[in-house]
Write a protein that binds this DNA or RNA. Structure first.
Lengths: 210, 210
DNA sequence: TGTAAGTTGCACACGAGTGTGCATGTTAGT
DNA sequence: ACTAACATGCACACTCGTGTGCAACTTACA
């Protein structure tokens, strides 16, 4: 009797969870290139057989759901820590933060447009989007951000501009510092900042410059 | 003997070409929402049976190839007519012109990233992209356009920002005038124009304002 | 109005991906 | 070393989309 009195069902093996994470990582990488890659290719990328994958995830949807949950929580956790009094700088910072979570962000972005998780995902991402929209609205009120585009629309365009850069980053390999700078400049450009003003703000904001 | 001496093979019926065009239009519309929609759904959207589709296009690839050829020629024809001495205004104009070909542009954009036509398509679109890149380079030289982003990259980011707006346009229905204005402002923002300067340029350029 | 072009509906073969069952190894933990 | 947890490989059933053949029907056109 080492554990309980009756039938000790011996706990999960450690490598199991390890493989589960490997599968999620592989899925993230593979689906980033091909949104409807087969489970076979995902399992192979994780160094496992397709049959083994079913030991960790009941169905394909289950895998994707877990992947998205994992990714969304990463993204939300990362962006939640970002704060700044200037709404423009805040938005640039959020963009830069998203850059650091490229894979998760892009997978999430894929499935906000296609697939059966759109609504569910949109719901999970709502707090972040609300925050962006709020910052845009506040900035437009103070005159810090352009007000010639309706805030809701501008918020979505900012989101789009960030995703644009992330797309570009996956095609041509971009190193972290330039990538972050590009995201910041894109966001600020969309917010109505001229090139000089944008550069000045980036240079003046250490979190953006680093 | 009405026509030739030997076997007069009676020409194509007119409704055949009509149906062919209907299929292309349906494909454009359906594939815009779902890039890998079935031939069944496309044929149905054209008011035909899947079996009839094979009377016009040998294979799925054949249909898509024709669709892309059709779309690319539309896009190139439209943008070829656009000229302007100011590179920034030219780029905004090209963007606005692309807005007027939303469906073709978006279908083309889809297949530049996924599917077996990537290289072929990129080749066909090269002249337009070269033109964008050239305008960016020239503008950066004169100081009219930001030079803190490498021209090649900036050109792709401009392309991305246009596609962003077109994406947004397909989600939320946007009327033509505001859509064109959004495209112009997005492009100019990416080029380094502040909100005020961008608005001034748009107002001063009748082809952009209309 | 006759005839060929075009459409339809059904059948079928085929490939690819999903999900499951089961027997047979491997390997981690005790 | 023993055992349960895990992985593997194979077989199988199932779904879905593609592409083809063929007979029967409708319609444009001369």
């Amino acid at each position: 009797m080492t554990q309980t009195l009756d039938a000790a069902p011996r706990s999960r093996r450690r490598d199991a969870e390890q493989n589960r994470l490997a599968l999620l990582a592989a899925a993230s990488a593979v689906l980033n290139r091909d949104p409807d890659a087969s489970l076979d290719s995902i399992a192979a990328a994780a160094g496992l057989s397709r049959r083994a994958l079913y030991g960790h995830f009941a169905t394909r949807d289950d895998l994707i759901r877990s992947l998205l949950a994992h990714g969304v929580s990463r993204v939300l956790a990362a962006t939640d820590r970002v704060e700044h009094p200037d709404p423009a700088a805040l938005l640039a910072l959020i963009g830069v933060t998203l850059w650091r979570e490229v894979e998760s962000v892009r997978v999430a972005a894929q499935f906000t447009v296609r697939g059966p998780f759109q609504h569910e995902l949109a719901l999970a991402l709502a707090p972040l989007r609300d925050r962006v929209r709020h910052a845009v609205t506040v900035g437009a009120g103070t005159g810090r951000i352009r007000d010639d585009i309706e805030p809701g629309m501008l918020a979505r365009l900012v989101e789009g501009s960030v995703l644009s850069v992330l797309d570009e980053a996956t095609r041509s390999a971009i190193d972290a510092p330039t990538g972050e700078r590009l995201v910041a400049l894109s966001v600020l450009g969309m917010l109505g900042f001229g090139a000089a003003d944008a550069r000045a703000l980036v240079d003046a904001t250490p979190e953006l410059h680093r």
